[in-house]
Design a protein around this nucleic acid. Sequence first.
DNA 1: TCTGGGGTCCTAGGACCC
DNA 2: TCTGGGGTCCTAGGACCC
Length: 405
Amino acid sequence: MRRIAHLDMDAFYASVELLRYPQLKGLPVVIGGGRRRVDEAIRDLPEGGTLADIPVAAFPLLKDYTGRGVITTATYPARQFGIGSAMGLMKAAKLCPQAIILPVDFDEYRRYSRAFKNIILEVAPLMEDRGVDEVYIDFTDVPGGQRDGGRSLARLIQTAIFDATGLTCSIGVAPNKLIAKMASEFNKPNGISVVYEHDLETRIWPLPCRKVNGIGPKADEKLKRFGIETVGQLAARDRDWLVATFGKATGAWMHEVAWGRDNRPVVTESEPVSMSRETTFDRDLHAVRDRAELGAIFTHLCEQLAADLQRKGYVGKTIGIKLRYDDFKIATRDQTIERFTSDAKTIRHTGGLCLKRVPLERPLRLLGVRVGALAKAGSPEAMAPAGTGVHRAAPEAVSTTASLF
DNA sequence: TCTGGGGTCCTAGGACCC
DNA sequence: TCTGGGGTCCTAGGACCC
């Protein structure tokens, strides 16, 4: 019998921070803010003092935070105030002004990410990466993976991760990835849930459609307009109606997931499709008035992206840009070039051409650059001579102000 | 008081080829 | 000369996820 686990680290970023700052345990803490006050607190430490010696009162508070940004993670005490991830910092400050805010430290989270994944791999080799804090694990052929429907193995992994890192996680074990993903949320934090095929009606059907991985805000809203709130109500609609209403692929998929069917394999290896860098400015910038600043930011993003590609050993041939205007609307442009590249100057130049094709009247809040159509550096594909494809004229520039780039 | 950064996949139209 | 269908690549936007 197929047994698939979904493992989700509990409040991952925040939990990693609490390992450094145990004095903050039990307090509302959010991750997502600026660096300065924490740096000051570290600098003010007495000789020989550790991070754990920083007095709680020295940490920055949400109410003193000014600036843009969102919460990436909130500790469980902070969640009691209604704070959640992706929430704007200003809104979170209203809900819980006394919450402590810490800056994001991706390098540290990546270290712990590698650590917990290595522990899993020692026990179960079929693991699929789903980002820093999540994985799927195929329990089916792991010795002991079937015992108690997978509960024993889940417990073993959970304990091993905690012993090695001090971090807790929640695990769902089910017949497939779809159900496992939902099950891992049943018992958070530090929980295990085992779901069988025959639990569909009692444990899955009562859930709101939004809990299905793949049904987002838009699809959920449309479902609600037809009176469909739960997975069970979705399962009650006939397939043809779903196909007629949501389209061939989406409708059929919805019918399958509502009946708990999902045969996607656990995928252990995958190649990246694109890499990108983007930044939201401290204040909105204008293409004309802030031309020099924008140009410098863009160059820097291209250099960072080129360095990412080179470090990871990839080249790409579709260069793209992304803008977010002050009204939050997004525009993208891209252009495919003749040769694969990871060169900052080439990316910068082609990105500059893309920028000439996009409207630049409105103030901008974000600028990004992307390289897609990736190949491994040095691979036969990446080395193929240019001009073998169909020749296509580059799109015309539409913007005049954009020539400033 | 607005809303980060890094991704994947899908759709849809047009170009172009067979 | 006209008609057509399939396949692939390119581009833009959008939904969704972590």
